[in-house]
Design a protein around this nucleic acid. Structure first.
Length: 505
RNA sequence: GCACCGAUGGCGAAGUGGCUAACGCGCUGGUCUGCAAAACCAGUAUUCAUGGGUUCAAAUCCCAUUCGGUGCUCCA
């Protein structure tokens, strides 16, 4: 039985994904161009790759995952120039922010992270290899281009017909000296910036210049994963021309298959429209945190819709995801208490076989759903079915301690991929506020959020204790006043049999 | 313009020929509670964008139309 059946863009079918000829599954994902903060669309892609990676590891597959950081490109050069900074100085803070965001979202760090600017020799070598085979040529201005016409199977990933590409293509200024419009830049000869100074460049045997965008991924993937590797992932927009060009470069140079499997994550819409700055529906993770949304809710929402489907992001659904997570966390705590013989009210000893069967079935459905092209929606449903059944049984007193232990194991399995049960939300929101203060953007923060977080846990605990005392004295007016006051500040109290619970909304 | 993908309840979404169309959120009523919250129970789409067709049988297959998205140009 296959560990994971995954849609392969190259073949157009769902195929088993597996490590071939190596103990580790070797995968590559196109990382960010670090010219700004990451937005929720960027993170949808990285989150789904994280789901893939976590699930494979759960299935016992070892992984070697490489992500590149594009730290030199047109936008970085342009923005750095207008900020009056060297490109590295301009880009580095965004790179740091990107990794902070990944961490906050629970996205595991790839084994290898490679910066484009640190792999220049490998890129140069690749162009030289291509030139030797006449796939690359140097134009009058000193730039190097890939000769698409010489690559017979060009277009095989995106299923493009070459004639169409030519029809739609347009000649960019500065690239007029290419032999054919569809030829793409491998190495861009150095140019002057608007202020007359020289843009960032490297002195190489190819001339003074900088790498083209597609070149870095080809060079880095080979450097760290070999000429042929198992999986290449990225957003759907990268399929053409970026990934197609990577294939063209790598396969023309090596004569070998580049990536066996290609995974493309679909774009998301925001409130029914394409996310864009001009529509005013463009959000970075940090924007959402300052508005009082929780990181866990965003993670859960973005991964709950399977990667091949368009997801329509709305604030209503973000709130719904937060509520769904609360339910899961409440349930998880209930099972932890019931399973612990030392807790105040552990469940009765034993195992109820009917519940045991349901638990096993939930785990099987969950695994089968993810193994089927990462159907996260169905995997989620299997877990919620278990939650409902277990809650009902608990209410009826038929769920025994052994069942709780088994259910916790299934929740661990679920959380190994979804990673939303552990509550770090308040902590991460606080970190975002610290960042906002440093960046002078605290004015963008939701006032209610600031008020809620201003309350320390100790202060809340003190008020809860005061209310418990008032309740004992049957002073319900005072008790309710404290509860309502806290609720107004975003803190919700729950009176349970074994004491008072509270949580930040 | 050309190519490709999609349209399922109030919202998100699973399901790709055959049991009462999953699951989450929301809403309404009930149980529990001093009152709440949490949890549970019941209800909440006779129907899957629209029109036609194939079939004993269609949300699922085919054709057309409408709307949305993507690529052809920087983009996750």
């Amino acid at each position: 039985m296959a560990t994971l059946d995954l849609f392969n863009t190259l073949s157009g079918t769902v195929q088993p994904l597996s490590a071939v000829g190596a103990p580790e599954l070797r995968m590559y994902c196109c990382g960010p161009t670090v010219y700004d903060y990451g937005h929720i669309g960027n993170f949808r892609t990285f989150l789904h790759v994280d789901v893939l990676r976590r699930f494979l590891r759960q299935q016992g597959v070892a992984i070697r995952y490489v992500m590149n950081i594009t730290d030199v490109d047109d936008k970085i050069i342009r923005n750095a120039a207008s900020a009056g900074l060297p490109i590295a100085e301009y880009a580095r803070p965004f790179e740091t922010a990107f990794f902070e965001d990944l961490e906050a979202l629970g996205i595991e760090r790839p084994e290898i992270i490679a910066r484009a600017t640190e792999c220049i020799p490998e890129m140069v070598a690749l162009v030289e290899q291509l030139a030797a085979k006449e796939f690359a040529y140097q134009a009058e201005d000193g730039s190097w281009y890939f000769r698409v016409a010489r690559d017979e199977d060009y277009g095989k990933l995106a299923k493009k017909d070459l004639d169409q590409i030519e029809d739609g293509a347009r000649i960019e200024s500065g690239e007029f000296n290419k032999d054919a419009v569809r030829d793409f830049a491998l190495w861009k000869a150095v140019k002057a910036l608007p202020d007359g100074s020289k843009e960032a460049s490297w002195q190489t045997p190819l001339g003074d210049g900088r790498p083209g965008w597609h070149l870095e991924c080809s060079a880095m993937a080979s450097k760290f994963l070999g000429d042929t590797f198992d999986l290449h992932a990225g957003g759907e927009d990268l399929m053409f021309p970026h990934h197609e060009n990577e294939i063209a470069q790598s396969e023309s140079a090596t004569g070998k298959l580049f990536a066996r499997h290609w995974m493309h994550v679909r774009f998301l819409l925001v409130e029914g429209k394409k996310m864009s700055k001009s529509e005013g529906n463009f959000y970075t993770l940090r924007d959402l945190l300052l508005r009082g949304h929780r990181v866990s809710a965003l993670r859960f929402l973005l991964i709950s819709v399977p990667y091949r489907h368009q997801l329509n992001f709305t604030f209503e659904d973000l709130a719904a995801s937060a509520n769904a997570i609360d339910r899961l966390r409440t349930f998880h705590k209930r099972m932890v208490k019931g399973a612990d013989p030392k807790s105040i009210a552990p469940f009765a000893e034993g195992i109820n076989p009917a519940i045991e069967e349901g638990t096993t079935q939930a785990a099987e459905l969950y695994t089968a759903a993810l193994a089927n092209d990462l159907n996260t929606a169905e995997a989620r449903a299997a877990i919620f079915d278990l939650v409902r059944a277990a809650n009902t049984a608990t209410d009826q007193g038929t769920l025994l301690r052994g069942n709780a232990v088994q259910i916790l194991a299934v929740l661990d399995l679920f959380d190994g991929v979804f990673a939303v049960l552990k509550d770090r939300d308040a902590e991460l929101t606080r970190a975002a506020l610290v960042w906002a203060e440093k960046e002078n953007r605290l004015n963008e923060a939701d006032p209610a959020l600031l008020e809620t977080l201003a309350f320390s846990d100790a202060e809340i605990d003190a008020l809860v204790a005061e209310r418990t005392l008032a309740k004992k004295q049957r002073n319900f007016a005072r008790a309710d006043a404290i509860r309502n006051d806290l609720l107004g500040k975003g803190i919700l109290l729950e009176d349970a049999k074994d004491g008072v619970r509270w949580k930040r909304k």
